[in-house]
Design a protein around this nucleic acid. Structure first.
Lengths: 123, 123
DNA sequence: ATTCTAATGCAACTCAGTTGCAATTAACCT
DNA sequence: AGGTTAATTGCAACTGAGTTGCATTAGAAT
């Protein structure tokens, strides 16, 4: 599905900010915060960004995850995978090869591990 | 280890707020936010609470987890177990029987599942 | 082309969590 | 036991991620 199709098939209007947002996210290998997004698209308005994050989350186009520093990070939700949040360096890693365990009775959308990443464990 | 020992073995001073905090947390079956804590201990100061959460997290006495609403929840860290955050009703459930999977190279301290809990899935 | 309504952009706001600092007090030492 | 000192408290002021109100803009449908 093309970025434009993702937008229109959900009954959403095809606007310039939305196309830009999906274009920027398609180049990311990790979830990013608004702060990081803004450094890649300096003209984006904060409200427009956050409102579209809510819209895209509801439409299952984008997925948000909470860092250990009380900030939200976002990424495209077309590849579902666990994340690792390092409590020392605060980086968020995608665990692309790690399966998501099932839980009886629960509908699991995502998993987040917290701890020390390999770099920080070695020190 | 008694609550008082938890405090003193870490070189921390045995103060009234700290004893109260550990007493209140010892009665909780779920992680709680400051808002919930404050309803159980109406005289606790916000700064004192948050500063002690940092101190207790560093001393491994208390563990914090991030809700999907950008708030921190806290619980005693003597029973390590995964948590489930419901994205619909926003309740945080302790998954006491669920094991914490290992991850090669990473030091895992906690796991959080997100999705819909059984109650919200049934609707 | 016109209309209608969703979406944008700006400024003002909210509120969880933090920080500065003076007052307090736990722990240590004769 | 009383005095000293540094950790801790409690209050008020601050911070900053995220939200909201509202007038303006611009998709999309007729």
């Amino acid at each position: 599905m093309t970025p434009n199709e993702k937008i229109t098939t959900n009954g959403l209007r095809l606007t310039a900010p939305r196309k830009k947002i999906l274009a920027v996210f398609s180049h990311q290998a990790h979830p990013i915060s608004f702060e990081e997004y803004a450094s890649l698209d300096t003209t984006m308005d904060k409200s427009t960004f956050y409102r579209n994050m809510q819209t895209f989350e509801a439409a299952n186009i984008i997925q948000g995850i909470e860092s250990d520093e009380g900030k939200r990070y976002f990424e495209l939700s077309d590849t579902i995978h666990p994340h690792f949040v390092c409590q020392q360096c605060h980086n968020i890693t995608c665990l692309d090869e790690t399966p998501i365990p099932k839980l009886n009775g629960y509908h699991v959308n995502s998993i987040t591990y917290k701890g020390q990443c390999p770099q920080c464990s070695d020190l």
